[in-house]
Design a protein around this nucleic acid. Structure first.
Lengths: 208, 208
DNA sequence: ACCTGAACACCGTTCAAGT
DNA sequence: ACCTGAACACCGTTCAAGT
């Protein structure tokens, strides 16, 4: 019944058994708080009270850690989209809620979103799980569009093509708004949603 | 009449009088060829046969050099948009040509485009010339939209809002296509243009 | 003004070695 | 298997000094 000592001793010497997840969490926290450029493998290590090179037991290099961060981001992102679509009761309102959720995620976690889409990753192709999660998030949108088509609300074009248009528009809006790239025009979440989403709807809806 | 020697001697010791532009050009070339992550101040210096720190006479830091690269990008970008709009004879066709030119620029110079929009720049606000050039490029689009409104082709909504929608969609498409972020769906320039631009037009055109 | 070399503090990554 | 410390090659940036 007293087998804890062994575990305790182990924890002191070899760290916990979930270093990988701890590394990802720490990286996400750093990125969220201070941006990608502030992410340092050495600091991640010391903050986790682990050697600077312990990380290499779980990731090939810094890029692989970033890929894991992006993968994790896609997971919560997809959940947020799905939840908004469901909570919005599908239909036009659900679609709008999804769009708002998309922008909300991007504006709330600009740095994390940047890792997912910003091109900080060098060889995304080398990380299949990343592609899988990205696809899964994309598929939430495709499925919603198919549903909207079946309800007679959206044109019966190729849903993939429609999804590309919708995703691109929302993504572009997120990047422009969060980066403040449009110069003078500083937009907030609601303003951006109000400007862009109705027009996206016009671009895909059945003509009335 | 023979005052060249002085110049020649000077060139050997103090480099040419256009180091700043040479630095930007070299940075652009490196980024274009090998990506932002390969840009090194030290290498830029040695390739220009100049000390590693000569750069600091012209730029506060690496970020300032990147801002200059982005500024230069916006200049040629704006010219490309304007040229397409004019060559397309304005109207719907000119608008489509502009959209294609946008995507062409982004796909032809993905890394340079990435510096302009990708968030590699830390404090874009600190570089006013960058904002000026970005605004100028944006205004080409706004002006085109106003023209289209006067021709009765585009709805008479706030042109700025219309421009945000158009820009965001095109920008998003460029990012997604160049990053191959849409998973399986690998799109080329023409496919992306064909999918997105007609729908953008539907989103802004006068209802027929 | 414009340029330089040496130096500083800081990276990511490798590797032989420990448990 | 998992972790470590020392070492390597490489950064951006500062600074006193040169012309």
């Amino acid at each position: 019944m007293a087998r804890f000592p062994a575990r305790a001793k182990r924890r002191n010497t070899y760290h916990h058994g979930h270093l990988r997840q701890a590394l990802v969490d720490e990286a996400v926290a750093t990125i969220r708080a201070r941006g990608v450029h502030a992410l340092t493998l050495r600091e991640v290590g010391t903050r986790l009270r682990v050697s600077r090179t312990a990380l290499y037991r779980h990731f090939a290099d810094k890029n692989a850690l970033l890929a894991a961060v992006a993968t994790e981001g896609f997971r919560t992102f997809r959940a947020a989209l799905q939840q908004a679509w469901d909570a919005g009761g599908h239909g036009r309102e659900g679609f709008m809620a999804m769009g708002r959720a998309y922008l909300l995620f991007a504006l709330d976690n600009p740095s994390h979103y940047g890792v997912m889409f910003g091109g900080h990753l060098h060889d995304a192709a080398l990380h299949p799980e990343l592609a899988v999660e990205g696809d899964a998030a994309f598929r939430v949108l495709v499925n919603a569009l198919v549903d909207l088509q079946q309800s007679g609300l959206v044109r019966r074009d190729d849903p993939q093509a429609l999804a590309v248009f919708v995703w691109a528009t929302t993504h572009g809006t997120a990047m422009l708004v969060s980066g403040g790239q449009l110069g003078h025009e500083r937009l907030g979440l609601d303003a951006a949603t109000a400007i862009v989403m109705p027009r996206v709807w016009d671009g895909i809806a059945v003509r009335g």
